[in-house]
Write a protein that binds this DNA or RNA. Sequence first.
DNA 1: TAATAAATGTCGTTT
DNA 2: AAACGACGTTTATTA
Lengths: 260, 260
Amino acid sequence: MEGRCRVLQGPTIEEAFRAIRDGIAGRRNVLIVGNCWAEYFGRASSKLGAGERIVLIKSDGSTLVHRPRDYAPVNWQPPGSLFRTRIKEGRLHIRVFRRKQHESLELIFDRVYLVAILHLIDLGEFHLYASEEDMRQAILIEPSLVEEGFRPVTIERPVESGFVDILGVDREGRLTVVEVKRKAVGREAVLQLERYVEDLRRSTGREVRGILVGPEVSRGAQGLLAALNLEFKPLSPKRCAEVLGDKRDRRITDFALEER
Amino acid sequence: MEGRCRVLQGPTIEEAFRAIRDGIAGRRNVLIVGNCWAEYFGRASSKLGAGERIVLIKSDGSTLVHRPRDYAPVNWQPPGSLFRTRIKEGRLHIRVFRRKQHESLELIFDRVYLVAILHLIDLGEFHLYASEEDMRQAILIEPSLVEEGFRPVTIERPVESGFVDILGVDREGRLTVVEVKRKAVGREAVLQLERYVEDLRRSTGREVRGILVGPEVSRGAQGLLAALNLEFKPLSPKRCAEVLGDKRDRRITDFALEER
DNA sequence: TAATAAATGTCGTTT
DNA sequence: AAACGACGTTTATTA
């Protein structure tokens, strides 16, 4: 473990500097807790006043500056960033930059409470279920999730303005565009569907139905749907996962137990 | 600093458990480095195999599980989460959940390398420049950024399917919808603009121009624009920031809300 | 490399 | 509380 994890508590700026510089050079993960401020220039620009934060520099170069609140980092750099650390006027400067993107984050610490240099090995697999892709799969396996008598014909069918999620035929043989969303659909999704339907009407000269599938609709989207003569079919990712679980292999079944 | 930052290096599971439980109860920020695996159930569900990671539990309840790579956490919970920590079969279990949302993340550690309990004070202000809002401001101050002779009339004008960024009149008196984007515009933005233009044509019975303003257009969006007879005007957030820098100090704030 | 759309998106703002 | 849209969105996939 000692080889894996080197910790400095209450280091001097000089000690912190050396540990961080070497940690970054050695492609370790570097954790810094201290009082800092920051400036960012690139796609936009930003200024962050002084405060106590947690900074995480990962071995792939991604860098996160976390305040004691919120999910999102207040400042960051994506993977592949480069670093320059130095001491200036008794303070620790860490410049995180991406040359090609002309993007730079300058971090300045005047106090460092904790530095940890970590060699982490993480080969664990990660799997996510109940994605929009899973919903599409479920519909292909069990088309009645959309509507009794619905028959899918094509997936990812290209039309003029994009790709139709599922193109099929309803029980009366009408061409039917299905657009799937894993969360509550808003106006945006309706516009997308409307465009697809319009493209298909034009290119085929046939009558075309448009059905939005998702767990719920917003009020505004509801109105737009009505105005554009489009339809909504409620369907949750959860329900789809169940269908997939039944038909494929069991994955989500313990979810029901969890939910009570 | 000692009051601010309590660190356990290579603690036993029991020691880690106590420190973490008390840290969470005391609304501290808690850093954990160790070997863990995880399961998530909620909006979706996921399974993460064993590996060495950094876990950050913030004082507002937000929780992040970070692998040694990537900007994004592999698992997380938003602010406001609740916690239950316990030891089971010699392992440390941390359950992070939100009852109302029926969302739960279960983290299990079999080894803990480092625990830090942090009391962080962060009152620093954060400011972001060159946002889309800044671009709109710049256009209001300097309408020729869109086109010579353009005169803004209304901002955030509601139409049937949403809100028009800037509604104005071109040099020939034609109603003109301007949609602003801070980065390269894709199909989505074109659809949005098309809808607005269509709504206004219908509701006013007048000729309506639609101009998309942004740093660049994608190929596909370009095509869609042409097909729908809409226009594109290149304008970068940076250029807008310059304009604001020049003109802002003159305090032309509540400008352009009245019709001219 | 560019483009396109999903995301457990998150987050602020406004109704 | 719900809706709506921006975000330095990031990330994966595909042409």
